[in-house]
Design a protein around this nucleic acid. Structure first.
Ligand SMILES: [Mn+2]
Ligand SMILES: [Mn+2]
Ligand SMILES: [Zn+2]
Ligand SMILES: [Zn+2]
Lengths: 148, 148
DNA sequence: GTATTATTGAAAAGAGTTTTCATTATCAAT
DNA sequence: ATTGATAATGAAAACTCTTTTCAATAATAC
């Protein structure tokens, strides 16, 4: 996803943000990560590239990127403070329970189910969350999954 | 759900827990609520019935009830610290975005989708989260939804 | 280059949750 | 019913995560 780094910086600039080293580092880390990250993880990785990066800046940047729709929060068993590059399409997440690798997929067809539920419950459905968990190919091969 | 109050207390007892006023109050509140509650909400409601109930006891009881599978955590836009009576069947949640009313539904058929995803991604899918949001009949009628 | 002002990181504050601990209350065994 | 063992309680303290404050700095427009 590294090719989007400049795109994100430009989108930030278009929103009135200045292009700072701290933001570049945070953006790059998010775009390079195959899995959703906690603010503290972004911070730790960021410090390796920018000696005195502040955790506050990570929070502020994540907030701004979420606001621009470039990252999304990911809900998870162990908490809901994970951030992942967002998808533009209508897609949902497939997450490896072992390594956290996140992949978007499309093609869910819930319209029949939703019509059914509207009929039986009287709810007007406006939104749906769907998230799949499993074991990714790499973790299946490595056999480490036994410990999961 | 009030009829389950004694059942829950017995299940707690079977797990080695003593039957205390604090637990009764917390159990009752959870069983009476049509929506998922935050620990602080359980505490506030509990204090009205048991003058010096402690917030710590609410946390401890929620933890125990979750461990026994009697309540489940509900993930939500504004946080993931909501607790709701759990369902025994394979069911998912339908939540009113306006009043929070939670209802379980069954009948989701995702097997075709999951087979498809397994084929294209190589993931071995082990779990799925599905949650629907909408407006419940009562909120639709009251017209308050306009403000949502 | 200079002025403007957004951004920064440290420190402090705040919110939510967990741990500690002395006291109390439940329950099983008399 | 009385007793004893010990689970449970609530207040306070500790802790973690997140947000706010603020003076110094750096990015951008001119
Ligand atoms: Mn969908
Ligand atoms: Mn299902
Ligand atoms: Zn994996
Ligand atoms: Zn409603």
């Amino acid at each position: 996803m590294a090719q989007y780094s400049e795109t994100w910086m430009k989108l930030l600039a278009a929103d009135g943000c200045r292009q700072t080293p701290a933001r570049r580092v945070i953006v790059d880390i998010l775009l390079e990560s195959p899995r959703a990250l906690e603010p503290m993880e972004v911070f730790s990785a960021g410090r390796e590239r920018l000696a005195n990066l502040g955790l506050v800046t990570v929070y502020r940047t994540l907030e701004k990127l979420e606001e621009l729709g470039l990252v999304q929060r990911v809900h998870h068993h162990g908490g809901c403070n994970l951030y992942l590059r967002a998808t533009n399409a209508h897609e949902h997440l497939l997450i490896c329970s072992h390594c956290g690798k996140a992949e978007y997929f499309s093609g869910d067809n819930l319209s029949a189910l939703m019509a059914d539920i509207t009929r039986t419950t009287g709810f007007a459905i406006t939104e749906h969350w769907l998230q799949l968990f499993g074991t990714c190919p790499a973790c299946t091969r490595s056999g480490e999954v036994i410990h999961a």
